[in-house]
Nucleic acid binder design. Structure first.
Lengths: 109, 109
DNA sequence: TATTCATATGAAAAGTATTTCATAGGTATT
DNA sequence: AATACCTATGAAATACTTTTCATATGAATA
């Protein structure tokens, strides 16, 4: 394995990026960027069924994109901003540098 | 849509991160980090069927992770290092900060 | 221009991830 | 301790991605 993967490995990348390749999880990340929320908060804000939110959060937590803490019967989720915000900004920059036409979103045309 | 997504959008993230959530595409990225290569080079280096490589490269190109130029009947692919190298390094850092046990690769335990 | 080499592409099959739905496990409240 | 509320979880169904395989396109060469 070469440079980029010395310290990490393919599975790590896979489990991490899978989350970011999913629109619902990105919506959750966006919501948590604004303010930490409980599962039911997210359910209400995003108008998405509770178990979808829970399943998604479980995967996000697995690679530490979010963390949670108990608060009574609720569970408050918050974004691990340190990595994720700069990372998404990088992609924003990246795609701004290239084509962003409606059809393809980054075709390079 | 909120902060992170002002300049980008869910589709952009999706198409971009989908690539990085795929082991073969990560292998291709790793190979191209070392040196630019033609499709048949990659086919040989990675011991992977040609059409798999081509399909993968097409998706990587779609969001400008790689670019290509013609050279006779070959097509030389190279990595758009500016974004991708720092980005992968960020994930390496991120997962180093957390658990990295064999079973879960980032469970937070 | 026929042939060969390199790459791309379409579509069905195979593989993988998410969604759905029913239900279970905690915690607070009565 | 019964009930209500909040969240998690398992498994089947659905949706999505990648792989496979056959073939097409395009460039070089004999």
């Amino acid at each position: 394995m070469n440079k980029v993967s010395k310290t990490s490995n393919f599975s790590t990348y896979h489990i991490f990026f899978r989350n970011l390749a999913n629109p619902l999880k990105i919506r959750i990340i966006s919501a948590l960027e604004e303010k930490e929320s409980s599962v039911s908060d997210l359910t209400y804000q995003l108008k998405v069924e509770q178990s979808k939110i829970s399943h998604a959060l479980a995967l996000l937590k697995k690679c530490n994109i979010v963390k949670s803490e108990k608060k009574g019967k609720e569970r408050i989720y918050s974004l691990n901003k340190k990595t994720i915000i700069p990372l998404l900004k990088m992609i924003d920059e990246h795609s701004k540098s290239f084509c962003n036409c409606k059809e393809c979103r980054g075709c390079g045309k």
